[in-house]
Amino acid sequence: MTINITVYDFWNLRKAANPELLIDPIHPEDYLCRYPQELGKGYYRWIPMREGIIIEIFDTYLPQPIKWITHAHHQKSLEFGFILAGSGQDCDGQPKKSGEDYIFGGVYPQSNNNIDGAGNLRWVSLIIKPETLRTLIESYGEQVPSDLEKAIAGVPEYFNLRPSLITPAKQVALQQILHCPYQGLTRKMYLESKVLELVSLKLADQVAAPTEKLLRLQEIDRIYHAREILLRNIGNPPSLIDLAQQVGINEYTLKRGFRQIFGTTVFGYLHDYRMEQARQLLLSGQMKIEQIAQIVGYANRSHFATAFKKKYGVNPKAYQMQKNI
């Protein structure tokens, strides 16, 4: 069963669930907000950065899908959103999927198509004022990407730029935000550096518009299927020809699809995934480095150590010891 609720009713429920402002005792610069128990359980967290930038972390569990009934309204800030868990549909009918990111803002249309699916819903959003984003971009001597120009200029049109995949590089930065080990000034500077990193990675998606012919929907599904096969076999991945045959496309389309969807080559994606899996296993501290190397597809520990150091700037043993300290 789906719950139908207006945004105004939700605000009233949220206000009732939070009669006073909650401040995190560990990080007093953070603001917390409980999710209304009538709809689910969880919280919002707001972390103010410099003027015009806020990090919003949303983590909740919804026992039932929620359909939002919204009226037209103008969101003057831009939102760079990264969906880490959950799925649904945006107010313009576009699907929202775990593992994707997006940029949206402007005047939201009246709609009842905005749906959050049941289950865990987790995202990180960077709320940025248009003038702040323009200043950041121009301070580096760059021009504003053409598809963001109207939004940054304050033209009140709804926009929801085509989503892109949360690449391993973005995933690392997001996890560093969620698990920041610092406090006070160091924490704010560290978090702001991660905001700039994520914004730059997302803007790179927008300015690197493919000159090749865009993939058809059927081809996109097969590229995702190819990724699933690849990640199920990280220790012994199929060749490009075999992988293409398994999903029913030719090798050229497979290569082109990975570049368009994931921004890298097939084996570049696999390499980044292996390194991220290795990093997580090292942080757990429950396995020896030789075991981790084998799990992520390296028969030789020294080859694994070389690849890990090239990716993260430190060898696996030093990384593990540093994090344990």
Rank of each mutant, 00 (worst) to 15 (best):
G154A: 04
A153Q: 05
T132K: 08
S125K: 13
Q143I: 06
P130T: 08
N120D: 04
E142C: 02
K129H: 08
D116N: 15
N120V: 10
L121Q: 12
K129N: 07
G141V: 03
Y140T: 00
G154S: 15
A153C: 08
I152W: 10
I152T: 03
V124E: 05
E131Y: 14
S125E: 07
G154Q: 03
S125F: 10
D147F: 07
W123L: 07
G119T: 10
L136V: 11
A151P: 01
N120Q: 10
T135H: 11
T132G: 03
D116R: 15
E149V: 09
L133M: 05
P145F: 02
A118Y: 06
E138F: 02
R134H: 06
T135K: 12
E138K: 09
D147M: 02
W123K: 06
R122D: 00
A153K: 04
L133D: 09
V124M: 07
E138R: 12
S125Y: 04
R134Q: 12
I128D: 07
E149D: 06
W123T: 02
L133A: 08
K129F: 02
E149H: 12
I152Y: 09
K150T: 09
A153V: 00
E149R: 11
S146H: 07
L136W: 12
G154H: 12
L121I: 14
R134M: 13
W123S: 03
G141K: 04
P145D: 09
I128E: 12
L148W: 14
R134T: 09
I127Y: 03
Y140F: 10
G154P: 09
E149T: 09
V144E: 14
L121C: 04
N114R: 04
L148E: 07
S125M: 02
G119C: 06
L148I: 12
I152D: 10
S139I: 01
E142W: 15
I127M: 05
V144N: 14
I127C: 03
V144S: 12
P145A: 15
E149M: 02
I137H: 08
T135M: 03
V124K: 10
L126V: 08
A118S: 10
R134G: 02
R134P: 07
